[in-house]
Design a protein around this nucleic acid. Structure first.
Lengths: 347, 347
DNA sequence: CGTTGGCCTGACAACGTTGTCAAGTTAGTG
DNA sequence: CACTAACTTGACAACGTTGTCAGGCCAACG
């Protein structure tokens, strides 16, 4: 009880465990556990003694070992499946989720799937092997029914950005259809009839939704415009080429709706290269830094990824807290931001 | 051995464990372990039997429980501490790290610290409690010596983007000094003498390095220019205000070096608002999407975050594989990309 | 002084897995 | 046929922690 020193003090290999701390402090393991977890019912003197020993050994609680034994069987861990942690939209969702989870001590595993349908399931399986307490997933595969049994085992799953197929679960998306319709209406309202739609892979659900919203609004205005639809554009180069082809063809469109961020960038490059940026109208889906600094400013339908992430995280936390209501579907409204490019009248 | 059904088959609560699979397959637990880990020495028939049972119960190996017992004491987990997962630079590092780790089955915990010195240590502590196998850290605190004992316990730590203070460890950074010097030389070479330096918080190491590189190059050319130095600009609004103040003052600079991405954006806004974008030269540190689409295109010193991330990850993996050589310091060269704004001559 | 009740404390089992080891089976050999 | 070697297999302990529970101590009470 006087000085504290034993053979563990200056040890090199291996981390100290509670056993070491207990030995050094001259108490039982369980008492160390109580102190490290701030449980009540430990005499103040004992607590101080244990803390001193823990500090001396630089002992850190091993949460994994604790999780194994703990009765709630929670790992305080969450799986987040995204297109890519390197893309802006995903990054903002990630951050919102992290911010919602951090106060509860829940750590986030993020995984990039690159919208590859083949990679979704293995990535999710890897997360499940780590016994995450919940899952927030951007679906990339055509079907998520492989998760049905997990839902039955009470694993909370929330989908973001796209709706799942093959199972009923909470889901948070942008209003893709309405947003695209708003873009179409905006261009039509400025007098355009020859409007090109440039979109992403039609395997991607949001792309289909946007296509549909756009087409419906065009139809409502009596425009068919099938000839101006180009899809399956997944990167900015393909979009640039497609836009160039359209704009240099006979009967070019007077306006373009770019239904995805990379498509918008490609179209911007094409317009600039052809010197048409002040003559052909453009509305893009998804906002980007600097859109206001271009000449003309780029009119966009802005999504709100941080809201999507926050909502998804709140939903998941509610499920973790035992909420058992039936799955809900949240739609985050997008915002049309006029900056110039979308207000150019037809030639 | 004929049909497979027992009370576990249709169970609702709780996940199946090896015990359940073993019971259903009619074998011992250890045999299930061998099969699930693809270990050799199991008869083909037994293996098939076990796999069938596992599939029927949808059993998934619990890697946390395994890690506890496994002799290498590895969690196959990595901690990544970044300014923010929502920022582009960090996101690309994150992705590079993820890509390097995924083939080895190592999952990544990413944490955002927002360059808040107070948050670094708690965030790292949380990761250590989860027993990550290694750490990749962007230092935000003025001192990292709190990690010394971890290094002694053989925990691999690699620092990225900034050098650590107070301990010797692997480190991967951009060539901040040289990059800033190159920017200064570029502007000087185009005839400028009145060059403003707008930089980030001087508590941030890279900001100080850039400041130094810029100042040294200016001094080499016989320019003192103290009056044009503005620091502590941590967001784009502050940068815009500072730039506006400089440009509307008496004796405005003929060129600006924006030493950080948000500063660059602020300066761009100021220049555009004042209609000076074709008259005042600008070089920014850090590249950004669309820099080529602005008018004029923005000349930048481009960093290469994906290389930084990849190098850091490789370093960490080498340490995990037992490399014990002394810590190394890697510098990833930046690239000056002329696009127009940096080639504007002085008025 | 015996009893009660509150407060501390630690022995022990258990969480789900893997390492160790011994035992059983089978095929091959002399 | 006895014996060996190779291959399978499972009982058991252990990983570091937490839940349970019983026991020790002490002050207050009748």
């Amino acid at each position: 009880m006087t000085t504290m020193s034993n053979r563990y003090t200056g040890s090199k290999p291996g981390r100290p465990t509670m056993k070491h701390v207990a030995a050094l402090a001259g108490v039982g393991i369980k008492t160390v556990s109580r102190v490290m977890n701030n449980e009540p019912g430990v005499a103040e003197a004992t607590r101080a003694q244990v803390l001193r020993a823990a500090e001396q050994l630089k002992y850190q609680l091993d949460v994994n070992a604790g999780n194994l034994r703990r009765s709630d069987r929670r790992t305080r861990t969450l799986g987040l499946v995204l297109p890519s942690v390197a893309n802006q939209f995903s990054g903002e969702i990630h951050r919102a989720v992290e911010d919602a989870m951090a106060p509860r001590g829940i750590a986030v595993f993020a995984s990039s799937v690159d919208d590859d349908p083949e990679r979704e399931q293995p990535v999710v399986a890897a997360l499940l092997q780590r016994r995450v307490d919940g899952l927030i997933v951007t679906p990339a595969a055509p079907d998520q029914s492989y998760l049905v049994s997990e839902l039955e085992h009470e694993l909370p799953v929330v989908f973001v950005d796209r709706e799942p197929v093959g199972l009923a679960a909470d889901c948070v998306t942008s209003d893709n259809r309405e947003g695209a319709a708003a873009a179409a209406a905006h261009l039509i309202g400025h007098g355009h009839r020859r409007i090109a739609y440039l979109g992403d892979l039609s395997t991607i659900q949001t792309a289909r939704e946007r296509r549909r919203g756009f087409a419906e609004e065009a139809a409502r205005a009596g425009i068919t415009g099938q000839t101006f639809t180009v899809e399956e554009l997944h990167d900015s180069r393909a979009a640039q080429e497609a836009a160039t082809r359209l704009l240099t063809g006979s009967e070019p469109p007077t306006a373009i709706f770019a239904a995805q961020i990379l498509v918008t960038l490609g179209v911007l490059r094409a317009l600039k290269e052809l010197g048409l940026q002040h003559r052909v109208a453009l509305v893009g889906f998804d906002d980007f830094e600097l859109a206001d600094l271009l000449d003309p400013g780029v009119t966009v339908v802005a999504q709100h990824p941080e809201q999507i992430g926050r909502l998804a995280a709140e939903r998941l936390l509610a499920r973790l807290d035992g909420q058992r209501s039936r799955p809900e579907r949240f739609v985050v409204p997008s915002t049309l931001i006029p900056r110039g490019s979308g207000e150019i009248p037809p030639a």
